[in-house]
Design a binder for these strands. Sequence first.
DNA 1: GTTTCAGATGTTC
DNA 2: GAACATCTGAAAC
Length: 140
Amino acid sequence: MIYGFASRLGDISFDWESRRCSRLFLEGCGFDDGENPVSVWLSSYFEGHALPLPPIAPPKTPFQGRLRKALLEIPFGETRTYGELARTLHTAPRALGQALGANPLPLLIPCHRVVGANGIGGFSCGIEWKQALLEFERNS
DNA sequence: GTTTCAGATGTTC
DNA sequence: GAACATCTGAAAC
């Protein structure tokens, strides 16, 4: 089931199956029931204080599990570079980018807090979102 | 000092 | 196998 959420930065929608969130899109479609745990989490996030994560689908690969954990340790409003994270996970910077792009849960898993050493890097759902999110977190 | 380039590198599909 | 949301160091200006 696809639900929607209208945030101050744009429309968001997400896939809610079997009482957990399996995918999240940074574009609008679906309706907002306002009671879904993901909607609740999103509204708390956009008020500047994120709650504990709602249930989400398990990682597709073991590496994504490690990546997820590392990303969740980046505090709200801070960023890491691809190189730094690659060193903590004992992997190559480029491999990180590949795995981040394959992440089906942007925002919930804060993949937007990873930037390039020279430049902002990339973002699967549109670079405008990444910039807007980082600016929003900085000013919160 | 700054800019440019090639090579290394691990995960994903 | 090929593609990739990168980094680093060395060489040239």
